[in-house]
Computed example of a mutant assay.
Amino acid sequence: MIPRTSAQALAAVTSALLQDHDVTGLLAQLVQDSARFVPADAAGLLVLDETLMLEVLSATSHRTNELEVYQAQRDEGPCVDVVRAGKPVEAIGEDEIKGTWPKVGEEIVDAGFRAVFAFPLRWHARTIGGLNLFISEPRPLDDDSRQLAQSFADVAALVIVQPQRFEEVDLLASLRRALEGRVVIEQAKGVLAYQLGLDMAGAYDELVRRSGQTFQPLTDVALDAIQVAHRGK
Rank of each mutant, 00 (worst) to 15 (best):
residue 166 F to V: 13
residue 61 S to C: 09
residue 213 Q to V: 13
residue 220 D to M: 03
residue 12 A to H: 00
residue 200 M to N: 10
residue 30 L to V: 11
residue 27 L to S: 06
residue 32 Q to D: 14
residue 139 R to A: 10
residue 204 Y to N: 05
residue 125 A to C: 05
residue 59 A to T: 04
residue 53 M to S: 12
residue 129 G to E: 09
residue 179 L to A: 08
residue 108 I to H: 00
residue 48 L to K: 09
residue 183 V to N: 06
residue 40 A to H: 10
residue 22 D to I: 02
residue 100 T to A: 14
residue 98 K to H: 09
residue 192 L to H: 05
residue 148 L to Y: 13
residue 58 S to Y: 02
residue 147 Q to A: 12
residue 6 S to R: 01
residue 141 L to H: 03
residue 105 G to C: 04
residue 38 V to D: 08
residue 134 F to G: 00
residue 188 A to P: 04
residue 186 E to G: 09
residue 189 K to D: 06
residue 225 A to R: 12
residue 33 D to V: 06
residue 23 V to A: 09
residue 62 H to Y: 05
residue 143 D to Q: 15
residue 41 D to Y: 13
residue 14 T to P: 00
residue 8 Q to G: 15
residue 165 R to I: 15
residue 140 P to M: 07
residue 224 D to Q: 14
residue 74 R to V: 14
residue 211 S to A: 15
residue 132 N to L: 15
residue 57 L to C: 11
residue 111 A to W: 00
residue 219 T to M: 02
residue 131 L to Q: 07
residue 81 D to R: 12
residue 23 V to M: 15
residue 210 R to D: 08
residue 109 V to W: 02
residue 56 V to W: 05
residue 230 H to Y: 03
residue 123 W to R: 01
residue 221 V to H: 03
residue 89 V to S: 02
residue 145 S to Y: 02
residue 21 H to C: 11
residue 48 L to T: 04
residue 156 A to I: 06
residue 86 G to E: 03
residue 148 L to Q: 05
residue 92 I to Q: 05
residue 171 L to R: 01
residue 86 G to C: 11
residue 41 D to K: 08
residue 29 Q to T: 09
residue 178 A to P: 04
residue 38 V to H: 10
residue 15 S to C: 01
residue 66 E to D: 05
residue 31 V to A: 09
residue 152 F to I: 02
residue 5 T to G: 07
residue 61 S to Q: 04
residue 71 Q to A: 03
residue 99 G to I: 05
residue 71 Q to W: 06
residue 114 R to L: 07
residue 176 R to H: 15
residue 188 A to F: 03
residue 3 P to F: 04
residue 155 V to K: 07
residue 102 P to L: 12
residue 11 A to P: 00
residue 126 R to K: 03
residue 182 R to C: 01
residue 171 L to K: 02
residue 95 D to Q: 08
